[in-house]
């Protein structure tokens, strides 16, 4: 089966989902940033007590805030999060992830279950890993970094 067919048929649950960094209303930006750094993740999903996503704060939003030079990291996260953020269900086709990333130009997507509760995070990295897994003979054998060939000829 080709990749195009697979992404139409296989569900989002087949992607390697990441454990999201979450916060509740009232969490300060400083606390969220510390958690994102610790988990090496570029976003925090703001959730309600039922773990339903109510907003997203990303590292690019942080860059925008710092550039404005008028933000305190002690502000609560809900003051600066995006309230509208795309999400997919575990059972949606992987093609929906591709479409959301391209049309909405986002790096991360919330993955929710049938009750709209947050169960994971996917996005650019998960999709790249999925494609790489599909073509291991091309991708997994690549030299990473360095010169493509010796600069000096061997021998005379």
């Amino acid at each position: 089966m080709g990749l195009q067919e697979n992404i139409q048929k296989e569900p989002v649950s087949q992607l390697a989902l990441r454990e999201p960094v979450t916060a509740e209303r009232g969490t300060t930006l400083r606390e969220a940033i510390a958690k994102m750094r610790e988990k090496k993740l570029g976003c925090t999903v703001v959730v309600d007590p039922d773990r339903k996503p109510i907003g997203m704060f990303t590292e690019s939003m942080l860059t925008q805030l710092l550039a404005q030079n008028a933000v305190s990291l002690d502000h609560p996260i809900e003051q600066h999060m995006a309230e509208q953020w795309p999400w997919v269900r575990l059972t949606d086709p992987i093609a929906d992830v591709l479409e959301a990333m391209e049309l909405k130009n986002v790096r991360f997507l919330c993955v929710v279950d049938q009750q709209d509760r947050l169960v994971g995070l996917t996005g650019q990295k998960g999709l790249m890993e999925y494609v790489a897994d599909h073509f291991p003979g091309q991708v997994m054998v690549q030299r990473i970094g360095g010169k493509p060939y010796p600069q000096d000829r061997e021998g005379a």
């Binding site: 790096r107 990295k125 790249m128 494609v131 790489a132 073509f135 997994m140 690549q142 030299r143 990473i144």
Partner: peptide, 17 residues
Amino acid sequence: TDSPAAALAVMAVAGYR
């Protein structure tokens, strides 16, 4: 001159965006 697969490997294997 590398293949597109090389760029994909840096992202998917090495983890650089």
